[in-house]
Structure formats: C-alpha cells, structure tokens
C-alpha cells in the first residue's frame, strides 16, 4: 500500500513531482528561510511533529505566522559532528525533519539514513546537497513590494519556485507570494485583463 503523501501548500501542487511530500524521501533546498517554513507549515498544521536541525537562525515568530504549530516543533540548532545520530534519533518520532548538514554527506551515511527514513515514513528536507533526492527546490527572481526610497515597508514578495527532479528533468516553476502580507505562502492571483467597454456615441 502506498503511504499517504504529506500535505503541501496548494500553490506548489503543480510543480512538485507529486501533489504532496512522499514519506521516506529527501528533498533539497538552497536556504533555510521562508521556503523551508512554508513547506513545514502544512504538515505541522495537520498535526505532524516537525524538527529543524542545524539552523541557529530559525525565526520562531515568522514560523508561527507561516502556519507552523510551535507546540509541535523541536529545534536542535547546533548538533556539531553528531548530526547524523541526532537525525536518526529524531526520525523515530518526528514526521518532517529539516537538517542543514555541516559538510558533505557520505553516500554510505545517506543511504543508511535513507533506509531508516523510509522505514519510519519521515520526510527529510535537506538544506544543502544530498545524494538521490526526490526533488530540488530553489528560489529565483525575487520582487519585493511595499518599499520605496525612504518610505513604506516590506509588504510581500513575488518569487519563482523552481523544482528539478528525476521524473521531470526539464524542471517546473511557479510564481508565488512568499511571504505574502500575512506571512504564508500564497498563490499569485492573476487579475483578469480589464475588458474594454464599447464607447457609445
């Protein structure tokens, strides 16, 4: 029986290889910022435990705004050299684990950890490199709105999420609001072109 896919933001259903995160798989991200928090938000809101290992700059308040439930979030900011054992121990109970490895990961270690993740049904979000990932997500072309020359404040950011995976080598992308004005990842509403009314007379 195929395991149930974990929840993802609605705006990303078209670009990921499947309409959800596959338990037991690893996904790669470039940086531990708002995209990581957006990916943690949906599983966390659905009641799953989330963990973040090796990211001392993780912002809890932004995470709460993004939709992550802080009472089911665990942070291990500095695992040092023991990060593999820590991830293995946390994989027993945490459903979505984000980790930023301090250096290169050996193939053997990644394979062993991968077997344990598949066994436990855990989704791994790696900030950095990982052999045999399900998909790689990166951000491009950010456009902030709200700031001017000495006035305003950052209101929202339009950014493109690009996904490359084994199944879709060409890659897919979608433009989203990340963060939107409320802090979550939101779809960009395309306004219909204004229709021209016939001018009478």
């Amino acid at each position: 029986m195929r395991p149930q896919l974990f929840e993802i933001p609605a705006a990303l259903t078209e670009v990921l290889p499947e309409p959800g995160l596959r338990p037991g798989s690893a996904y790669c991200l470039d940086s531990p910022g708002s995209l990581l928090q957006a990916l943690l938000a949906e599983p966390s809101a659905a009641g799953r435990w989330c963990g973040v290992v090796g990211v001392p700059t993780f912002a809890a308040e932004a995470a709460a705004d993004a939709g992550i439930r802080l009472e089911r979030l665990v942070l291990v900011p500095d695992p040092a050299e023991q990060w593999l054992s820590v991830v293995g121990a946390l994989a027993e109970v945490i459903d979505v684990l984000a980790v930023r490895p301090p250096g290169r990961v050996r193939e053997a270690d990644a394979a062993r950890l991968g077997a344990r993740l598949r066994d436990r049904g855990v989704v791994l979000l790696v900030i950095g490199e990982w052999p045999r990932t399900e998909a790689r997500l990166s951000l491009a072309e950010p456009h902030w709105q709200g700031l001017g020359q000495g006035h305003g404040h950052l209101r929202s950011r339009r950014i493109r999420v690009e996904v490359t995976s084994r199944r879709v080598p060409g890659g897919r992308s979608v433009t989203v609001e990340l963060p939107s004005a409320s802090g979550v990842l939101a779809e960009v509403l395309v306004e219909p072109a204004p229709t021209r009314l016939p001018v009478a007379g």
Binding site: A60, E71, E92, V93
Partner: peptide, 24 residues
C-alpha cells in the same frame, strides 16, 4: 511519551540545552 523519550535521548547526546522548543 515516545516523543519525550526520543528528545531525552538526543539531550543525552548533546546536553539539555541543545534540544529546544520555541515560544513567543
């Protein structure tokens, strides 16, 4: 209890101050 046991194991590895829960 399972979550607590796993967290305690990680605390034994790294020290009690390295496994944290955020609060605003």
């Amino acid at each position: 209890e399972r979550v607590h046991h796993a967290m305690s194991r990680v605390q034994s590895m790294l020290g009690p101050d390295q496994v944290l829960r955020p609060r605003i």
